[in-house]
Design a protein around this nucleic acid. Structure first.
Length: 203
DNA sequence: TGCCAGGCCCTCTTTAGGGCCTT
């Protein structure tokens, strides 16, 4: 198995926007993708040790009752740390998920060496004419079918996975780049939009 | 329902401000 071709796509639901302001993770959903195929997944609610407000209940679909029965953050994050290992990571607006991953893993003293790529930054370059680059909008823009009942807390990581696969397929198809390496996607996320075509054509 | 934070990105820019994304 090649580590370079394996990535973990993840999504956190949290009590708010900033771990520096005391916010905690309340759910983690993740998929392990190896050579473009889903190999494993991880999904768990976690109890942050205090009640969440009604906005977060409505926004995520996660209730205080659900969290009361969930194991504590520390227990879930230990299991997730084993799941993610040192693989590279993908998230939609990765700077957000990275802050929470760093904060939660620091609490249990679990360092990791995987690097992040951001599906939102890549989408701003691959789908430059999308109305906006919210996850739900991109799913519609790319004509990606969404199966099952939409429930944000449980399905965002699956939609991110479908979006990520669609963007890899787009690059593969339009630029004939096979076995797209992780560092291509990291560099693409920093490439000025007007230079994206040249960047990919000259890869 | 979001004022919080932070990185990206555009522009009436770089001696800055504000919108986009994430919960």
């Amino acid at each position: 198995m090649s580590m370079a071709n394996t990535v973990i796509i993840l999504d956190f639901e949290t009590t708010g926007l900033s771990p520096d302001m005391g916010d905690r993770a309340i759910e983690i959903g993740a998929v392990c993708i190896e050579n473009g195929e889903i190999k494993d997944h991880f999904q768990a609610l976690m109890n942050p040790g205090r009640r969440i407000d009604s906005f977060i209940e409505g926004y995520t679909g996660i209730t205080n009752k659900m969290l009361a029965d969930a194991p504590p953050c520390e227990e879930v994050m230990l299991e997730f740390a084993d799941f993610m290992g040192d693989y590279n990571l993908v998230a939609h607006n990765a700077s957000f998920d990275k802050r929470f991953l760093d904060a939660e893993l620091a609490r249990i003293s679990r360092p990791y060496s995987g690097k992040f790529a951001c599906s939102m930054l890549v989408s701003r370059r691959i789908y430059q004419d999308a109305p906006n680059h919210k996850l739900g909008t991109l799913i519609k823009h790319a004509n990606i079918p969404v199966d099952g009942v939409f429930h944000r807390a449980l399905y965002d990581y699956q939609m991110t996975t479908k979006l990520w696969m669609a963007m890899l397929g787009n690059i593969n198809q339009h630029y004939d780049i096979h076995d797209i390496p992780f560092n291509l996607l990291q560099k693409l996320a920093k490439t000025p939009k007007k230079h994206v075509r040249n960047f990919l054509q000259n890869w």
